[in-house]
Amino acid sequence: MRNLLKVENLDAGYGPVQILWDVSLYVDYGEIVALLGPNGAGKTTLLKTIVGIIKPKKGTILLDNIPINGQPCEKIVDLGITLVLAEKELFPLLTVEENLLLGAFNKRARKRIEENLELVYTIFPKLKERAKQKAGSMSGGEQQMLAIGRALMSDPKLLLFDEPSAGLAPLYAKILYNSLRNLMEMKESLGILIVEQRVMHVEQLCERGYIMTNGRIVYQGEITASSQALEFFRKYLGVR
């Protein structure tokens, strides 16, 4: 069986400090998968390793059955994985439109730049309004929209989100999750891996998920209100 993303026995870290220990997970085409866990569990490190910012020490990462571990970040983006970090990492002195256009930098995405721009403006009409505004002058919620829009412009096969609702007012978070749901309906083979700290956010969005602590996967399975996951969280982590 072919998964969109398959991570097997991954070890990774920063220099001599190892963060990830024997991590394995998978994401299927058309799936939104949750990755949960407390602060410092290594979730962000895992995302950065998948996209190539960090080179793994051991293990394999397969995209569409193609091994991508060890490849440079720009190659992995070109192959179809895009990461959106919690800090958004926008280009503050460039306009909204320039930020979006840069999202399509990789060769593959450039071919579909006009239709993707249409798509982004459809999902986030606010961005179209503010197309000529400097990205640094927008509010937190708008910047988050722009970050996601920019990610969409890269014509991704797999989207990685690192705590997309962090710092967002609940209303914006709701809009965000609705847009993601719309997106999944529009692009059937797209896969999404969402990192969040709380089950509450993702239980409406994801059916399946993983829980990480101390650099290891400690749970995989259903993520719903009545599932074992919540029990697990409450018992071992003391988190809701």
Binding site: I53, C73, E89, F91
Partner: peptide, 23 residues
Amino acid sequence: TWHGMAIRSLTQNEIGAMLVGIP
């Protein structure tokens, strides 16, 4: 130009540029 925009983006946010696939 694309090269020019890539350069401008790199001067503003190196991580952002990486995420977008700029070498």
